[in-house]
Computed example of a mutant assay.
Amino acid sequence: MPDRAALEGILYVLKTGIGWQHLPHQLGYGSGMTCWRRLRDWHAAGVFTRLHHVLLDRMAQAHQLDWTRACVDSTSVPAARGGPKRARTPRIVAGLAASVM
C-alpha cells in the first residue's frame, strides 16, 4: 500500500469518525487495519511530531502564526518542580451495601 493512500485512509477515518474496520475498500485506501498499523508505526517513529514542527516552521516563515492567541496547559507542559504532592484519599468503605433483590 503506498504511503499516500494509507495517509488518505487515516485522514478519512479520523475526519468521519468511522471505525477502522468500516473503511470502504472502494475508496482505494486499503484495509482499515493496514491504515491503523501505518498510523501506529508512523506515530512510534515520530513522523507526526516532525511534520508538526515542519508546518510550524513554514507558517512562522510566512508570518502566519499568531502567538497572541496561544494557550498552554498542564497536559502539554509539566509543572515547574513537579508541583505539590497530594495526600492519599482514604477509603470510606464501612461495609457492603444490602442486596436489592
Results as ranks from 00 to 15, higher is better:
residue 17 G to D: 01
residue 87 A to G: 09
residue 66 D to Y: 11
residue 35 C to R: 05
residue 82 G to T: 06
residue 81 R to I: 02
residue 55 L to D: 03
residue 81 R to Y: 12
residue 83 G to M: 11
residue 43 H to N: 08
residue 61 Q to K: 08
residue 16 T to K: 01
residue 64 Q to N: 11
residue 22 H to D: 13
residue 75 T to K: 15
residue 42 W to A: 08
residue 27 L to A: 01
residue 34 T to K: 04
residue 51 L to M: 06
residue 32 G to N: 00
residue 42 W to T: 05
residue 14 L to A: 06
residue 81 R to G: 10
residue 21 Q to I: 06
residue 17 G to L: 01
residue 55 L to A: 06
residue 93 V to C: 11
residue 52 H to L: 10
residue 89 T to S: 12
residue 35 C to N: 08
residue 28 G to A: 03
residue 33 M to H: 04
residue 35 C to Y: 00
residue 100 V to D: 15
residue 57 D to N: 07
residue 96 L to F: 10
residue 1 M to Q: 01
residue 30 G to D: 01
residue 32 G to S: 11
residue 58 R to D: 06
residue 7 L to P: 00
residue 13 V to F: 05
residue 49 T to D: 13
residue 21 Q to T: 07
residue 6 A to E: 02
residue 42 W to I: 01
residue 84 P to L: 13
residue 41 D to P: 03
residue 15 K to S: 14
residue 15 K to V: 02
residue 16 T to Q: 01
residue 53 H to P: 05
residue 50 R to S: 06
residue 94 A to M: 07
residue 13 V to Q: 04
residue 49 T to I: 13
residue 75 T to W: 13
residue 24 P to A: 09
residue 24 P to Y: 01
residue 37 R to Q: 05
residue 18 I to W: 02
residue 68 T to H: 14
residue 26 Q to P: 00
residue 40 R to G: 07
residue 31 S to E: 08
residue 40 R to Q: 14
residue 96 L to N: 04
residue 89 T to A: 12
residue 43 H to Y: 09
residue 24 P to I: 03
residue 3 D to G: 07
residue 38 R to E: 00
residue 40 R to E: 09
residue 82 G to N: 05
residue 89 T to R: 15
residue 92 I to G: 14
residue 87 A to R: 13
residue 91 R to Q: 14
residue 95 G to N: 12
residue 69 R to A: 09
residue 38 R to Q: 00
residue 72 V to S: 13
residue 89 T to E: 12
residue 48 F to K: 04
residue 60 A to M: 12
residue 79 A to P: 09
residue 35 C to T: 03
residue 65 L to V: 14
residue 1 M to D: 02
residue 73 D to I: 11
residue 29 Y to M: 04
residue 88 R to D: 12
residue 58 R to P: 01
residue 49 T to S: 12
residue 1 M to N: 03
residue 69 R to M: 15
residue 48 F to T: 03
residue 3 D to F: 00
residue 72 V to R: 15
residue 97 A to D: 12
residue 62 A to G: 05
residue 58 R to W: 04
residue 32 G to R: 04
residue 40 R to F: 06
residue 45 A to P: 03
residue 46 G to M: 07
residue 29 Y to K: 04
residue 22 H to P: 02
residue 66 D to T: 07
residue 7 L to M: 08
residue 50 R to I: 04
residue 86 R to S: 08
residue 53 H to I: 06
residue 69 R to P: 07
residue 50 R to N: 07
residue 71 C to F: 12
residue 77 V to S: 13
residue 60 A to C: 09
residue 97 A to R: 14
residue 65 L to H: 07
residue 21 Q to L: 08
residue 99 S to P: 07
residue 59 M to W: 09
residue 88 R to Q: 13
residue 13 V to H: 00
